[in-house]
Every structure is written in structure tokens, then in C-alpha cells.
């Protein structure tokens, strides 16, 4: 063989897969700590850069999410605790204690995970169906939805049935995400 080369590659494609799946969620998650979307984006980008530079490897969906949410949370808290930030922003000790709690972290993860899953699912539905499911999540009853959209209750029921049928495969494997395994070698 003319030439062989040992490489330790973190495939750009797998990295992009993680980015595509989690970037928006992580930004929205970070925003609930720092209350500024642009700042949130910068912090999330910093975490992504670190993942690339340190060639961090993940085995599955849980591993990648555990790492990313935790890393973003830590980045946010570090910033909030920094002298520089505290000199310009006024955050009470109580508020800071609240953000430091594990249950706050878990609550924010749950909200982001559920929201992004619901949005992804609804986006696969036809417009009318999607509209009905959204109203239904907002707590409207079938007659209320019917009145709101100026259609019959039977149509609402039929559309819901249609939606569940379409969503069934998604709900069954709970939106099994792509494999997050990086193509890497020793």
C-alpha cells in the first residue's frame, strides 16, 4: 500500500446530526437561565466547540443529552456567578439559589424535551390536523375546538383520529432519534 494514515476522526456528519437535533433546544433551555437569547446562543456554541475540540464521544441519545444539557447548564451558571456578570446584572440570592437547584435543571430539561417532541410530531401532520391537536393541547374540548374553527364536532373527532393514526408510529417508539454514535477509532 502506498500510504496509510491513522486518524482519530470525529465525523463532521455525526457532529452535525447532534447539532441539528439539539441546537435549538439547548438555546431555548439556556435562555431560561440567562434570560437573553443571544447570550444563550453564544454559550451553547461554546459548548459545541468544546465537544468538537475535545473529540467527545457519545454512545447513545441519553449520553449525548446528559452531556449537552449539563454542559450548557454549567456554562450558564458559571456566567451568572462571574464577577463581571454580577457587576452589571442584579440577581437576588434567592433567584440564584433557585437556578442552582437540581430540580430546576430537571424541570427545564423536561419542559424543553416535551415541547420539542410535541412540535416535531405536530410538524408531521397536515395543517388542519395540526391546528386541532394544538388547540387540544391548549386544553380546549372538542365542541370548543369545533366552534373555534367553525367546523362540526364530528370533523374534529375524525381529524383527531386521523392525527393519532399518523402519530402512532412516532408515539410507539417515542421518536427514536438517530444514532448518536460518532465514527471514531483508537
Amino acid at each position: 500500500m502506498s500510504h496509510t494514515k491513522k486518524v482519530y476522526t470525529l465525523s463532521l456528519k455525526s457532529y452535525k446530526d447532534v447539532y441539528d437535533t439539539l441546537y435549538v433546544s439547548l438555546c431555548l433551555f439556556a435562555k431560561n437561565y440567562v434570560h437573553d437569547l443571544d447570550l444563550a446562543k453564544d454559550l451553547v456554541q461554546e459548548v459545541f466547540i468544546k465537544v468538537w475540540e475535545d473529540k467527545i464521544e457519545f454512545k447513545n441519545e441519553v449520553a449525548v443529552k446528559s452531556y449537552m444539557y449539563m454542559a450548557v447548564k454549567n456554562k450558564c451558571l458559571d456566567l451568572l456567578k462571574s464577577k463581571q456578570f454580577r457587576s452589571t446584572e442584579n440577581m437576588s440570592v434567592e433567584d440564584m439559589d433557585e437556578l442552582n437547584k437540581d430540580s430546576f435543571y430537571l424541570k427545564e430539561v423536561v419542559i424543553e424535551e416535551v415541547s420539542s417532541r410535541i412540535e416535531a410530531a405536530i410538524n408531521t401532520l397536515p395543517t388542519k390536523c395540526a391546528q386541532i391537536i394544538r388547540l387540544s393541547i391548549n386544553g380546549l374540548t372538542n365542541p370548543e375546538i369545533a366552534q373555534h374553527l367553525n367546523i362540526s364536532v364530528n370533523t374534529v373527532k375524525a381529524q383527531k383520529k386521523n392525527a393519532y393514526k399518523r402519530l402512532r408510529p412516532l408515539l410507539k417508539n417515542y421518536f427514536a432519534l438517530m444514532a448518536f454514535v460518532f465514527d471514531y477509532t483508537t
Binding site: I133, I137, A163
Partner: peptide, 8 residues
């Protein structure tokens, strides 16, 4: 939770 909410 996502599944429950979607299924009303």
C-alpha cells in the same frame, strides 16, 4: 408526557 399530551 409528550405522548399523553398529543393523545389528549
Amino acid at each position: 408526557i409528550a405522548a399523553s399530551l398529543l393523545k389528549d
